[in-house]
C-alpha cells in the first residue's frame, strides 16, 4: 500500500515538474485507462471523420478541390494511425481497439454523425469542425503522455491546412451568387452548434476533467476552449459576410469575450447515445470496409510468408 502511494507521489511529482510520462514508466491504472479511452476515441474520430468528407470526393466542384479533399482525407487516415500507435504503447492491441469501434462499444466524436448535405458542408467541416478540433489538439501537444504529445505535434502541423481549405471554400461561396452564399450560410447554420458541442459537456457537468487537468492530460477546460473558439470564429464569419446562428451572441466589453446562447444538450446526449442522423450509417460503413478488407490482410500475410520462404531457400 505504502509502495503504491510512493509510486503515485513520484508519478505526480514528475508531472508537476513538466516531465513527460513514457510507455514503460510506472503510471496509475486510472491514468492508463483514461488515456486508452481518450486516445482511442480520438483515433476513431479521425477514421470515422473520413466518411462525411469522403461523401464529396467524387462530387467536388473542380479538380483542384478534389485533389485537396483527397489529400485531407488521406491525412485523416494518417492521423488515425498516429493515434492508434500511441494508444498501442499503453499495452492495448490494435485489433481490440478496432473491434471496440466496430462493435459500437467505443465512442468517437459525435460531430461525425451529422450528414454533409451540400458542398458547402465540406467548407463548414474544415473551417468549424477542424477548427474546433485544432483548439483541442494544440492543447494536447503539451499533454503529459509522451507518445500522445508527439502524435499531436505531428497532427497539428498537418491540420492547419485543413481548416484553411475549409474556410476558403466558405469564403469563395460567400462571395459567389446569392444561391451560393445562401448555401454557405445554411451550412454554417447547421454546423455551428454541433461544433460547439465538440468541446464536450460544460465544466460543471464534466466530472473527470479535474483529474485530467491534475495529470496534465488536459490543460484547459472544455468551457475555456469553447470560448476561445467562439471568440476567434465570430470574427472569421464576419470577415466573409456570414452570420453566426445565435441571437444571443454579443460582444461583452467587460469580459472581452463574446456572450452567447445555450447549447441544446438534449440533442448532444441523444447523438452520443447513438440516435444522431448518421450513427448507424457510419458504423455500418466502417464494418463493411473492415469486412471487405479481410482478404487483403490475409493475402498480405500469406505473401509475406511466401517471400520469406523463398528468401530462405
Amino acid at each position: 500500500m505504502t509502495e503504491i502511494k510512493n509510486l503515485e507521489e513520484r508519478f505526480q511529482a514528475r508531472i508537476d515538474d513538466e516531465q513527460k510520462i513514457e510507455p514503460r514508466d510506472w503510471m496509475p491504472d486510472e491514468y492508463r485507462k483514461t488515456l486508452v479511452r481518450q486516445i482511442s476515441q480520438h483515433a476513431h474520430s479521425e477514421v470515422v471523420g473520413m466518411l462525411p468528407e469522403g461523401n464529396w470526393i467524387t462530387r467536388a466542384p473542380s479538380l483542384k478541390r478534389k485533389a485537396i479533399l483527397l489529400a485531407k482525407v488521406q491525412d485523416e487516415a494518417g492521423h488515425g494511425l498516429y493515434l492508434y500507435s500511441a494508444c498501442e504503447t499503453l499495452g492495448t492491441s490494435r485489433e481490440r481497439t478496432i473491434d471496440d469501434l466496430l462493435s459500437g462499444k467505443a465512442k468517437y466524436s459525435s460531430i461525425f454523425n451529422y450528414p454533409t448535405l451540400t458542398w458547402a458542408d465540406i467548407g463548414a467541416v474544415g473551417w468549424l469542425v477542424d477548427g474546433a478540433a485544432i483548439m483541442n489538439q494544440v492543447m494536447l501537444c503539451r499533454t503529459s503522455y509522451g507518445p500522445y504529445a508527439r502524435a499531436m505535434v505531428r497532427i497539428c502541423k498537418e491540420e492547419s491546412f485543413h481548416q484553411r481549405q475549409g474556410y476558403e471554400i466558405m469564403a469563395v461561396l460567400a462571395k459567389g451568387s446569392p444561391e451560393q452564399k445562401e448555401m454557405a450560410q445554411d451550412a454554417l447554420n447547421r454546423w455551428w452548434w454541433p461544433s460547439l458541442m465538440m468541446f464536450g459537456p460544460t465544466d460543471a457537468n464534466s466530472p473527470n476533467s479535474a483529474q485530467s487537468i491534475k495529470w496534465k492530460i488536459k490543460r484547459q477546460s472544455n468551457d475555456e476552449l469553447r470560448q476561445i473558439f467562439i471568440d476567434r470564429t465570430v470574427q472569421q464569419a464576419e470577415a466573409i459576410g456570414l452570420s453566426i446562428p445565435d441571437p444571443d451572441l454579443k460582444w461583452n466589453d467587460e469580459t472581452k469575450h463574446y456572450d452567447w446562447g445555450v447549447i441544446d444538450w438534449t440533442e448532444f446526449n441523444n447523438v452520443v447515445a447513438g440516435n444522431g442522423p448518421c450513427n448507424k450509417e457510419r458504423l455500418a460503413a466502417r464494418n463493411k470496409a473492415h469486412a471487405e478488407g479481410a482478404w487483403v490482410r490475409e493475402a498480405a500475410v500469406a505473401y509475406a510468408a511466401k517471400k520469406a520462404k523463398r528468401k530462405a531457400a
Binding site: 490494435r94 498537418e158 498480405a300 505473401y303 509475406a304 517471400k307
Partner: peptide, 24 residues
C-alpha cells in the same frame, strides 16, 4: 524515430511508412 505501424513484412512497412510519415 517517428512512430510505428503494422505491416506484413519489411517491404510493406517501408511503403506504408512512406505514405504515413512522409506525405510532405
Amino acid at each position: 524515430h517517428v512512430g510505428s505501424l503494422h505491416a506484413a513484412d519489411a517491404d510493406m512497412a517501408i511503403e506504408n511508412a512512406r505514405d504515413v510519415y512522409t506525405r510532405r
